[in-house]
Computed example of a mutant assay.
Amino acid sequence: MSDTTPLRVAVLVGSTRDGRFAPVVTRWLAGQLGRRGDLRTDVVDLTETPLPDVLPAFGEEPAPEVLEALARVSPRLAAADAFVFVTPEYNHSFPAALKNAIDWHNQEWHGKPIAFVSYGGLAGGLRAVEQLRVVMAELNATTVRNTVSFHNAWGAFDADGRVDDPAVEAAAKSMLDQLTWWAHALRDAKSVRPYAA
């Protein structure tokens, strides 16, 4: 693939709670991604593509209905060059549905970069991001340093889901620039030799 081939970015929406704020944050993020000609976005919303809560025993083949559910998610994650996780913070951590989606997959994460957009109260979801970095390192993914974090998120967006804060726009650009750099570097490296997991 050439350097001009757009990168495929899968946005994984981590919250599945009723009344969740995730769609507002995700629409904003999709707008940021849509401004860039070098990126193509696929939003994977875990409410639209739910995965079973119980993983099979190690080495056991999933049931047919589980394979059907995975078929709606796994190929999209495998096709991605990079990821952005949109996550709230629940009890100083990230949502169970997001951990479940991560655990159902393995090679889909290998040798790919991940950025984070978090939201919440005073901490802005940053404790969720800290824990996600550790989890994704175990799955051979590379997390980018810069994040976008919405502190007291419900007050950060206007009624139309817009954010009128130049600092947030700058943070998003910096995060996506880092994600793009890593995605190109890792995609190029994997075109020369397979990732050694």
Rank of each mutant, 00 (worst) to 15 (best):
S2I: 01
S2C: 03
T4V: 03
L7G: 03
R8W: 02
V9A: 02
V11E: 01
V13R: 03
G19K: 12
R20T: 14
R20Q: 13
L29Q: 11
Q32T: 09
L39Y: 02
L39K: 05
V44K: 01
V44W: 00
D45G: 09
D45H: 10
L46C: 08
L46A: 10
T47A: 10
E48G: 11
L51M: 10
D53L: 15
V54R: 12
V54T: 14
L55I: 09
P56C: 11
F58Q: 08
E60I: 08
E61N: 07
P62R: 09
P62M: 07
E65R: 12
E65H: 15
A69Y: 05
A69L: 13
A71I: 05
V73M: 04
V73S: 02
V73D: 02
A78G: 03
A80F: 02
A80P: 03
D81Q: 08
A82Q: 04
P88E: 07
Y90P: 00
L98N: 03
L98A: 05
N100F: 01
A101L: 01
A101P: 06
W104H: 13
W104K: 06
W104A: 03
W104S: 01
H105M: 04
N106A: 14
W109A: 08
W109M: 05
W109I: 04
G111S: 14
K112V: 02
A115Y: 08
F116T: 01
V117E: 06
Y119W: 14
L122M: 11
G125Y: 13
R127G: 00
E130R: 14
E130I: 00
E130K: 11
Q131W: 03
L132G: 10
M136Y: 12
T142R: 02
T143E: 00
R145W: 04
N146R: 07
V148F: 06
S149A: 11
F150H: 06
H151G: 02
W154H: 07
G155D: 14
G155Y: 01
F157K: 09
G161L: 08
R162W: 01
R162D: 13
D164R: 14
D165C: 10
A167K: 15
V168A: 14
E169F: 06
E169I: 13
M175I: 09
D177N: 14
D177I: 12
W181K: 11
A183S: 14
A183D: 09
H184I: 03
D188V: 02
S191I: 03
V192M: 05
